[in-house]
Design a protein around this nucleic acid. Structure first.
Lengths: 268, 268
DNA sequence: GAATGATATTCAATATACAGAATGATTATG
DNA sequence: CATAATCATTCTGTATATTGAATATCATTC
C-alpha cells in the first residue's frame, strides 16, 4: 500500500529546507526543537515533537539528548516528556548584558514609562519579517511584563509597522503582500494605511489608534544603529483615553527626542 | 617537527568529551559557541572562537552559519565578528511563560521585596553543581536587576548553599570537595560552615551574614517540587544594617512561610 | 607599496551521524 | 487480564558532515 503524506505541518517545510542547505543540519533541528518546546504549553513526548517537525524519531531523540546534556532541555524520566530548561535563560542573560541598544535604551524607556504612565518597549527590527521586544519598562512596578522580553511580532503591525514601512526602503508591492497577512482588531485599508505611513515619514513617528488593539494607542519612533534602515524602535503603549489625558502631543515629542538620543548614542 | 598542544583552554576538554559521547555533536558545539558568545564582552571572530573551544575553524564556521540562519547569532559582514542575537531572548521567553515555579513564585517575591525593601530571587537548583536565578524582584523600581535573570552561581555558595547542603542529601565528603572550590569575600571554615548547615536543617532556612559579600546578608528557604531534594529556593538579599532595622526575624518567618506556600502550590 | 602574517573560506576524502527497520517498554482497550 | 497499539529506544549500513589542507582575502609591517 502506498500512501502520500497527508499534509505537512507548518514548521516542517522550512525546517526541511534549512536542514538541506546547512552544513550543520543538527543545529537547525535543535533550534526547531527548542522553538517548538518554547511555544508549547506543556512538556512534549518524543513522538509529538518528531511528528510536528517532520523528523525521524531516532534522530529527534539524539537531538533531545544532546540538548538535555547541554541543559537547554529538561527531561522528566517518569513521564518521558521534554521541556525547555533554565539554560536558555543563561544565554538570554548573556545577550542582555552585552546588547548596546538594550543598555542605552533602558534609561529613557524607564523615564517615559514613569512620566506618562505607559508601557514602554524597545524592539529590534528584523527586516520586513518580524520584530522582537528586547527591553520593557512599565510604570507601577508590575514585574510580570518583564517576561514579555523576547516576544515576537510581525514587522508591519501597529505603530512600529508604520515606521518600518516609512523608513525601511521596501517597495509598495512588498509592503502590500506583507500587509495582507496581518491580523488587526480593526484593520485599516491598505490605502488608509499607506497614507498613515506617509504621515509617519514626515512626522518621524508612527501612531496606531485602536487598529491593532481596540481602545489602545501605540506610538513608535525609529532608531538607527547605522545609516540606512532603522535597526530598532522605541514604543509607547497606553489606553487611548488615558493617553489623551496625560498629553499625547508631549509624549510624541519626547518619544521622538528619546529615539534620536538613542540613535546618537549608538553612533547612527 | 612534532609538537604537543601546549595547554588546553578551559572549555575545550569538557566540550571534546561531550562531542565524543553525543550522537549529535554539532549541537554540543553550537551550545558551546553560544555560551562563549554570551560570556564575551565583545563580538568575536572565527579564529578566537575556534581556538578557545578547540574546534576546527571550518567546522566552527559551519556551526556559526547555522546559528546565524536560526537567528541565534548575529554576523557583522564588515568586521566578520559574531555575537549573540535576539533569538535567544525568544527562547527564554518561552521558558518564562511556561515554568511553573516562575509563575507561582513571582507574586510572593514581589510582596516580600516591597515589604522589606530587599532584592528577592527565585533560583533553580541543579544538584550540587550550580544554581540559576530564574525570577527576580527588586524594591524601588530599578529595572536593571531584571537582567540578572539567568545568572549562574555555584550551588554551595552563600545562603542557598547552606540549604542545599542541609537538604540535598549529599555526603560530607562530596560537600567538602565542593566547598573547597568556592570563593567567598570572608570564607567560613568548613567546620563553622557545617555547623551553620546543621542549624539550617532545624530552622528551615539558610543565612549568610557577610560571608559571601561583606556587609550583605542573604537568606534562603528551600522549595520542593517533589519529595526528595529541594528543586528551588527563595532568596532575600539586603544590606546587613538595613535588614536589622527592617526586622530580620519577621523576614525570616515570612520567607519560610512563602517557600512553604510555593512548595504547596507546586504539589511538593 | 611590496611582503608578510593572520584571517576567513572553499574543497575533496573519509570517519561518522543519521534514516529506517527491529526490538523493548508502556499504555490503552476489549 | 490478555491483546493491541503506541511509544521510546537500540541497532546497522550508508549518505554526508567533518576534517585538514589548499586557497582567497584582509590587515599589518617594514
Amino acid at each position: 500500500m502506498i500512501m502520500r503524506k497527508q499534509e505537512a505541518p507548518a514548521a516542517e517545510n522550512e525546517l526541511a529546507k534549512a536542514v538541506k542547505e546547512s552544513k550543520a543540519p543538527a543545529i537547525s533541528r535543535a533550534a526547531a526543537v527548542l522553538r517548538l518546546l518554547g511555544k508549547s504549553d506543556a512538556p512534549l513526548g518524543l513522538q509529538p515533537i518528531s511528528r510536528e517537525l517532520g523528523l525521524v524519531p531516532s534522530t529527534c531523540l539524539y537531538v533531545l539528548r544532546a540538548l538535555t546534556a547541554e541543559e537547554l532541555v529538561n527531561f522528566d524520566p517518569d513521564t518521558k516528556r521534554y521541556s525547555l530548561a533554565a539554560g536558555v535563560l543563561t544565554l538570554a542573560r548573556g545577550w542582555l548584558r552585552r546588547d548596546e541598544f538594550n543598555s542605552v535604551a533602558q534609561t529613557p524607556l524607564d523615564r517615559l514609562a514613569q512620566k506618562f504612565n505607559v508601557t514602554m518597549l524597545g524592539v529590534e527590527i528584523f527586516g520586513i519579517d518580524h520584530i522582537i521586544a528586547v527591553a520593557v519598562s512599565q510604570a507601577g512596578g508590575g514585574f510580570q511584563l518583564a517576561t514579555q522580553v523576547g516576544s515576537r511580532f510581525p514587522a508591519l503591525i501597529s505603530a512600529t509597522g508604520r515606521c518600518i514601512a516609512a523608513f525601511g526602503g521596501h517597495s509598495e508591492a512588498q509592503l502590500e503582500a506583507r500587509f495582507n497577512t496581518l491580523r488587526w482588531e480593526d484593520p485599516p485599508s491598505f490605502t488608509e494605511w499607506m497614507e498613515q505611513v506617509e504621515r509617519t515619514r514626515t512626522a518621524g513617528f508612527g501612531i496606531d489608534e485602536g487598529n491593532y488593539i481596540g481602545g489602545v494607542t501605540v506610538l513608535a519612533a525609529p532608531v538607527w544603529k547605522a545609516k540606512g534602515k532603522p535597526s530598532h524602535a522605541l514604543v509607547a503603549i497606553g489606553l487611548t483615553a488615558a493617553l489623551q489625558r496625560a498629553g499625547l502631543p508631549a509624549l510624541q515629542a519626547e518619544l521622538v527626542a528619546a529615539a534620536r538620543g538613542v540613535t546618537e548614542q549608538l553612533g547612527g
